[in-house]
Amino acid sequence: MKIAFYGSSLLSSYWNGAATYYRGVLRSLAAHGHAICFYEPDAFDRQQHRDIDPPDWAKVVVYPATADGLASVLDGMGDADVVVKASGVGIFDRELTEALVDLPRSNALRIFWDVDAAATLDEMAQDPDHPVRQALPALDMVLTYGGGPPVVDAYRALGAARCEPVYNALDPDTHHPVPPDERFRADLAFLGNRLPDREARVEEFFLKPAALLPERRFLIGGNGWSDRALPGNVRTLGHVYTAEHNAFNATPRAVLNIARDSMARVGFSPATRVFEAAGAAACLITDAWEGIEMFLEPGSEVLVARDGQDVADLLAGLTAERAAEIGAAARQRILSHHVYEQRGAQVDALLRAPIRRAFAA
């Protein structure tokens, strides 16, 4: 099938945490024989911070972040068998959602792919005129980055014909164990941009343990942290490019996952970083959220903290040997059950199901 995908960016992870998710799923879809064209705006300095060159498994069209630029790529919707509009493009989201309803062929599949479902659902609950809410009756399917049964039920209640979670996963060719890198030496490291709906949780789960353990070394990567007051034992890195993620995860004693507020509240929403860390055989400490055991077993494959004191206690008692055991077990679990090859097969089956039903009729 010809797939036209309108998203934030495939080429850059700069202020764009969904990049590695898009790459993993779409690369796997291409292996199933689909021809993919990814449309991304030249916005937010992402093109100046590319992580990858245009891949051979997808055509990438970068369009100017202007009304004329948008108009220049909408014809792609009328020429595709499957049209996908992802959430969080960051510019022209309303116009792209409305076009998703109006421009594809009558027999094309129309899909909204929500990479921040909890936040989108909150917005729709407060705004009956939200463009996604208005579009739902015309869409064939909603796919989500995560969220589990609560998100599926909420989307169906708002009128979605079908909602399927397509969880994050591991691309073992991209994320894997590497030798330690002294730049990333620390007792605990966290990677995530500074965002309003995450900052309070970063204060609790990362900065509080740093204050409780002044003799330990803490490392924080991501945009926005350099101008914030931090404990003296916390070092900032700024943006960490995808090519450096393996070393960032493999070098510290442990790495920390902190969910954003909405994802922690809904649960069943493991971040990309969870799978990247496990792929590098890192010892992962995560804040507690419902559904973690679907992906990693608490205590043996991941350490789970209810608050900052828990993080400090876990870190204080964590030996290098136990950290290595947890990281190895996590990698084995993820390789067995949560790789992008499996996610691509899932989406391929979802795309082909309507065709099978049509022939059966």
Rank of each mutant, 00 (worst) to 15 (best):
K2Y: 10
Y6H: 12
Y14I: 03
Y14R: 11
Y22K: 04
R23Q: 15
R27I: 02
L29I: 05
G33H: 10
H34V: 02
D45P: 01
R46D: 01
H49R: 10
H49L: 03
P55T: 09
P64K: 07
A71F: 03
G78F: 02
D81I: 04
D81A: 07
G90A: 09
G90D: 14
G90L: 06
L100Q: 11
P104T: 07
P104K: 02
R105T: 01
A108Q: 04
A108N: 04
A108V: 04
W113L: 11
R133K: 12
G147T: 06
P149M: 02
D153K: 14
A161D: 13
V166I: 14
Y167W: 14
A169C: 03
H175E: 07
H176Y: 14
P177T: 06
P177L: 00
F184I: 09
D187F: 03
L195W: 12
E199Y: 15
E199K: 04
E203I: 07
E203V: 05
F206W: 14
F206P: 12
K208F: 06
L212S: 07
P214V: 08
P214T: 07
E215R: 12
D227S: 14
R228Y: 08
R228K: 15
N233I: 02
T242D: 10
E244C: 00
N246T: 02
A247E: 03
F248K: 05
L256M: 14
L256G: 00
I258H: 09
D261K: 03
M263C: 10
V266G: 03
R273K: 15
V274T: 15
G279R: 04
A282K: 01
I285W: 09
G291S: 05
E293K: 08
F295H: 13
E301K: 08
V302G: 04
V302M: 02
D307Y: 00
D307R: 00
Q309D: 15
A312T: 11
A312W: 14
L314F: 05
A316Q: 09
L318N: 13
A324V: 04
E325M: 14
E325G: 09
A328P: 11
L335P: 08
Q342I: 07
A345F: 03
Q346K: 15
D348A: 15
D348Q: 04
R352P: 03
A353D: 13
R356C: 08
F359T: 06
A361W: 03
